[in-house]
Amino acid sequence: MIRCLGLQWGPAGRPLTPPLDLPLPAGSLTAITGANGSGKSSLLKVLAGLHKPLAGQLRLAVPSLGGVGYLAQQQSFDRQFPIDLLGLVAAGSWRSRLSRIERRRRLDQALANWSLDGLQDRPLQALSGGELQRALLARLELTEAPLLLLDEPAAALDDAGQALLWQQIARWQREGRTQLVVCHDLDAVRRYFPNNLQIAADGCLFTSNSRDSFSMRGLRVA
């Protein structure tokens, strides 16, 4: 699914880590951890195609359009934009070729999955941070992108919201989606993630419960 060879990223001329070789199989679920400023978000942006890598190769086995679902750490959009929650979530089925009825069914399903029932008509402005975050995750679900890059999805969520998030991420994994999730909650990483990529300036560390052994450069394997 993902294949990095000697990948380096960060501000121009100042790569954040040694070159990284990392193959990630399709359907894998990986947490990305590391200190502030270590380059977690930057790595996701490189993978999402928003930034160019400084060096190395990156291959993603996904369609170039609609293949990658990216949830940014901070939303740059205008909270006063005249759109309601339903409109926001429905944009997820932009590329869907399904019938109107089937699209509507999936939309309702996604709303239910992220416990957004009853909030459909709320204007964006009147949503709490957690409700907005769940709406964005529901939109991501509707895109059916095979690769999901989530940058601190738990940050805005309360306990119930986080429990829902881990449950949905587990479901996405069962559905075969490949996921990379930036997460600061090490307890949650241990409980919910089979793989963990720790990012640090002196080299990245990949730990896996599934005992897959990868041959990697610039990567210590535990």
Partner: peptide
């Protein structure tokens, strides 16, 4: 409309 609201998302689903 979507480009005005969330160009980053539009980029991921349309050229």
């Amino acid at each position: 409309a979507l480009d005005s609201f969330d160009p980053l998302f539009l980029r991921s689903v349309s050229r």
